[in-house]
Design a protein around this nucleic acid. Sequence first.
DNA 1: CGCGTGCTTGAAGCGGGTCAACAACAGTGG
DNA 2: CCACTGTTGTTGACCCGCTTCAAGCACGCG
Lengths: 248, 248
Amino acid sequence: MVETSRQVECHLCPLRKRPLFQAVTDAELDFIAGFKMGELHCRPGGAIYLEGATSPHLFTILSGWAFRYKSLPDGRRQILNYVLPGDFIGLQATLAHPMEHGIEALTDVRLCTFSRDRLDELFRHHPSLARSLTWLAAREERLLDEQLLAIGQRKSSERIAFLLWRLMRRARDSGLIGEQGTLLLPMTQQHLSDTLGMSLVNFNKTLQRLRKTKAFTFADRRLTILDETAMVKLAAAEKYVTDKRPLI
Amino acid sequence: MVETSRQVECHLCPLRKRPLFQAVTDAELDFIAGFKMGELHCRPGGAIYLEGATSPHLFTILSGWAFRYKSLPDGRRQILNYVLPGDFIGLQATLAHPMEHGIEALTDVRLCTFSRDRLDELFRHHPSLARSLTWLAAREERLLDEQLLAIGQRKSSERIAFLLWRLMRRARDSGLIGEQGTLLLPMTQQHLSDTLGMSLVNFNKTLQRLRKTKAFTFADRRLTILDETAMVKLAAAEKYVTDKRPLI
DNA sequence: CGCGTGCTTGAAGCGGGTCAACAACAGTGG
DNA sequence: CCACTGTTGTTGACCCGCTTCAAGCACGCG
């Protein structure tokens, strides 16, 4: 990870313009701008957090993709969730305790860094931001609940359809989708199968079967949803609405 | 669920005496006492939250066991986590949105109720409690991370050993263990297998095999860990430490 | 006594895991 | 320029683990 000079002024933050994010007051924005220490840059494959290590930083993803993971002593790895621009990470660890999960970059990732020490100040002087932090933690919890339901109860074809659908939704909400409604996914099938708790081989074979439904196309890492209703059905899921969320 | 008259005065809360929980200042305790609206009582099998419904309340479990779950449109159910005394629930939903998961009582459960409306006040005037709320949300996230790793990567015998071990740890930390180190688990094998994403039959058969290791005994819902080191090994896990946590 | 619930065990079949081989492609270095 | 190598995707073959179906047992309760 490389420290870079301060680049994006919070008041001009391109993320904040997106309709996905809630408006903040000027005072809050001023505080955030002061809270921000600088930026980091991380190359694909680089570690943003190391499992079991401590880090004095909190981050907001400015751009790029990463994933949270956790592994067993013998090396088996579970990808817990993907991290997209606007996501806030690092809340889980207090300074005393090491991270219980790792975060690894999938693409070039730019991160806003914040000091854990100044978190106190945020809670004391900016209750609405504190509330936003709690909101973000609760949101991550929701995502994990869903993932748990998927892995525990869905069969493999449903899991794959569910994952691709959710990735598309999140990416679209974050404004990452190109003109044709096509999403370029930065992860390999190995990543995806580690996310769903299934073997790479089974992932690929089940994917082939799913392709025949024509509900989506997914080749060369380019995902397009052709029929969202069919996709939701394949995933044994229900439609849901995206609501605005805080950005810190 | 039955509304009962105010019974436990927060200043005399029996939970708070437990070494598991962090100390609070008098001012904080006063606020909590005012924040508390009353108590509810829930019989075994009763719904504390209904999946997809809204509720104006937040709760802290005073006594008893419950579980969080989420289900698929066709009825398959995943138990996400168990809820023990001292756990704070309900943060996930804002008033606008329905609960995405349900919570059901396993035993008689006594709950302290709080009004969601007054959450603002908590964030504005008691930053340390706000911080505690965030801490609790992050803790739930950690538990879910672990559960996800277990279901996604562990094989069935490891999953069972892991679940029994973790339940014992949590119950011991909460002071629920009798003299002999024996824990009376209120859930059926069906619940346990729904937690681990495996069939009841496979759960039972794998359990039989595990019993032969003599690392624990588990009959009549009474669980005793005989050899914790062996248990941790069976679970493909690593020892970990329990730290003090906030109680609201 | 009869019924319901939860635990246990056997038998059968399939889903998914592991092993293995190959194709397509990008990057490297001689 | 091209052989060499590593990564990613794809497919076939085999077999074990898990799910499903089914039946029996123990227990508590009306």
